[in-house]
C-alpha cells in the first residue's frame, strides 16, 4: 500500500484534506508547466498579439498561422544568431567533455593530492554567479584580446560547462569496478587501450549526459556571451534577450517553442542515458 492511499477508516476531515492536498499539488504542477505550454499555441497566432484572440479561442483555423516561424527562418538576424549558437555550443561542449572526462578519471584515482581543493576549483564556475563570471571574463579577456572573439566565447562557455561534466562523470566512476582495469592490464593492454576499450564504454553514459549538460549550458547561456561576445557572436538567447528588452515581437514565441521541443528531446536523452548507466552499473560486480 502506498503512503498516499487513504485508509478505509479515514474521517471526513481526513478525506477532504487528502483531496485538497491533491488539488494543491495539481495547481503547483499547473504553475510549473502551464507557462511553458501556453506559449506553444500562442506562437501560432495569426495576429501580432501576445494573448489568445477570439478566433483562436473558437479554434478557427484562420486564427492560426505559421507566420512567426516563417519570420524566424527568413530573418537574417535570427538565422545569424541560430548559426552562432550552433557553432559555439558544440565547440564548447567538445572542449568541456574532453578536458572534463580526463580530469574526472584523474580525480577518481586512489591517491590524488589536494583532491578537495582541486574539486573546489573545478566546480567553481557553477557556484559563482554568472554576472560575476561575466564581469571578470569581460575585464580579463579584454586585457588579453579575447573579448569579442569566437574563441573567447567558446573558452568561456567551456569553462561554465566543465563542472557538469566533472560531476556526472565522477558520479559514474564511483560505481566503476577497478578490478576491470586490472584485469585488462593483466591481459596485456596498455593504459590507453584499457581506457578506451574497457573504461570508456562503461562510463560513456555519464560522459554523454555530462556533454548534454555542457551543451545546454552553452546553448542557453546569455549573461557571459553578452559581455564576452560582440555583435558578431550574437547567439539565439542573446537575440531573444534583446528582443525581449527592446521590442518584443511574437517571433520570440516561435523561437521559444522550438527551444522547448529541443529541451524535451534533450531531457529524454538524459533520462534514457541515466537508466542505461544504472543498468550497466548494476551489471558489473562489486
Amino acid at each position: 500500500m502506498s503512503q498516499m492511499d487513504l485508509p478505509p477508516y479515514a474521517t471526513t476531515g481526513q478525506r477532504i484534506w487528502h483531496y485538497a492536498f491533491y488539488v494543491i499539488c495539481g495547481l503547483i504542477f499547473f504553475f510549473l508547466i502551464a507557462p511553458i505550454l501556453v506559449i506553444i499555441p500562442l506562437s501560432f497566432n495569426a495576429e501580432n498579439f501576445f494573448t489568445f484572440t477570439p478566433k483562436m479561442l473558437a479554434l478557427d483555423p484562420e486564427g492560426y498561422s505559421l507566420k512567426h516561424y516563417q519570420e524566424f527562418f527568413t530573418s537574417n538576424a535570427w538565422q545569424h544568431a541560430l548559426w552562432n549558437s550552433v557553432k559555439i555550443a558544440p565547440a564548447a561542449t567538445l572542449l568541456a567533455v574532453g578536458l572534463g572526462t580526463l580530469a574526472a578519471v584523474g580525480l577518481s584515482q586512489e591517491h590524488v593530492p589536494f583532491r578537495r581543493a582541486i574539486m573546489a576549483i573545478m566546480i567553481s564556475p557553477m557556484i559563482v554567479p554568472l554576472i560575476i563570471s561575466a564581469a571578470g571574463m569581460y575585464f580579463f579577456y579584454s586585457r588579453i584580446g579575447l573579448q569579442g572573439t569566437y574563441l573567447g566565447v567558446v573558452l568561456a562557455h567551456a569553462a561554465l560547462g566543465i563542472p557538469f561534466v566533472i560531476i556526472t562523470v565522477t558520479a559514474t566512476l564511483v560505481g566503476f569496478d577497478k578490478s576491470l582495469t586490472r584485469a585488462s592490464a593483466s591481459l596485456g593492454a596498455n593504459p590507453v587501450t584499457t581506457f578506451f576499450k574497457v573504461q570508456m564504454p562503461l562510463i560513456l553514459p555519464g560522459v554523454v549526459s555530462g556533454g548534454l549538460f555542457a551543451f545546454i549550458t552553452s546553448f542557453d547561456e546569455v549573461v557571459v556571451v553578452l559581455f564576452v561576445g560582440s555583435a558578431n557572436q550574437q547567439t539565439l538567447p542573446w537575440q531573444m534577450f534583446t528582443g525581449l528588452r527592446e521590442q518584443i515581437s511574437p517571433t520570440i514565441l516561435a523561437v521559444a517553442t522550438i527551444l522547448v521541443v529541443i529541451s524535451i528531446g534533450l531531457l529524454t536523452a538524459v533520462e534514457i542515458l541515466r537508466r542505461r548507466s544504472e543498468k550497466m552499473r548494476g551489471m558489473s560486480p562489486g
Binding site: 522547448v260 524535451i264 531531457l267
Partner: peptide, 12 residues
C-alpha cells in the same frame, strides 16, 4: 521539463 527549458523561454 521546466528545469531543462531555456531560461529565456521561461522568462519570455
Amino acid at each position: 521539463l521546466p528545469f531543462w527549458t531555456s531560461l529565456l523561454v521561461r522568462t519570455s
